Computed example of a mutant assay.
Amino acid sequence: MIRLVLPTEDYEEQVLDYKASFERDGDSLDGIAGLLNFRTFKEWYEALLDNSCEATVREGLVPATTFLAVDENDRLVGMVDLRHRLNDALEKCGGHIGYSVRKDERRKGYATQMLSLALE
């Protein structure tokens, strides 16, 4: 069983490890609010905060809420990005929800749980 939590500095090490695992495995990092585009957790976290509401969303992006999916041991197993609205690009490819699950945690039903929790 997992739960969705908002990112905080407490998860910095796990978020960076999550990013590294996807880079190492050559996987697509979806639903992670552009994590690949940032060198540090702080830069990414500041962008998350900016992009969480219409008044401060960065140019070319849409407001969104990014959640970490953590298991019963508080281990980061996935991420889900819930977009509050779409732009033209997301209308064609992307949609309202983007998500990813780390490779070693796939095929355990986490993505299904994440989508269900995000829709709530």
Rank of each mutant, 00 (worst) to 15 (best):
E12F: 01
G31C: 03
L29E: 07
L16A: 08
D25R: 15
G31E: 02
E9L: 02
N37E: 11
K19D: 01
D17P: 09
L16P: 11
A33E: 08
D25A: 15
L36A: 09
L35C: 12
I32V: 15
R24Q: 12
E12G: 06
D30N: 14
Q14D: 10
A20G: 08
E9R: 01
D10T: 05
E23A: 08
I32R: 15
Y11V: 01
E13R: 05
D25Y: 13
Q14W: 04
G34H: 05
Q14C: 09
R39D: 14
D27M: 14
L29R: 08
G31D: 03
D25E: 15
L36G: 10
D10L: 05
D25P: 12
L35E: 12
G26V: 00
Y18D: 01
D27E: 15
G34V: 06
L29G: 13
R24L: 13
L29S: 11
E9K: 03
L16E: 10
I32W: 13
D25S: 14
G34M: 06
D27I: 14
E13K: 06
E23D: 08
S28R: 13
S21E: 14
D27R: 12
E23G: 04
E23H: 03
L16I: 06
G34K: 04
N37G: 14
A20Q: 08
Y18V: 00
D10N: 07
E9H: 03
R24W: 10
R24H: 11
D30L: 11
D27Q: 14
L16T: 06
L29W: 05
R39Q: 08
A20I: 03
E23W: 03
E9C: 05
F22M: 04
E12Y: 00
D10F: 04
L36C: 11
Y11P: 02
G34N: 11
L16W: 05
E23R: 03
L36P: 07
V15N: 04
R39T: 09
S21W: 13
L36I: 03
R24E: 13
D25V: 13
N37Q: 13
K19C: 00
Y11H: 02
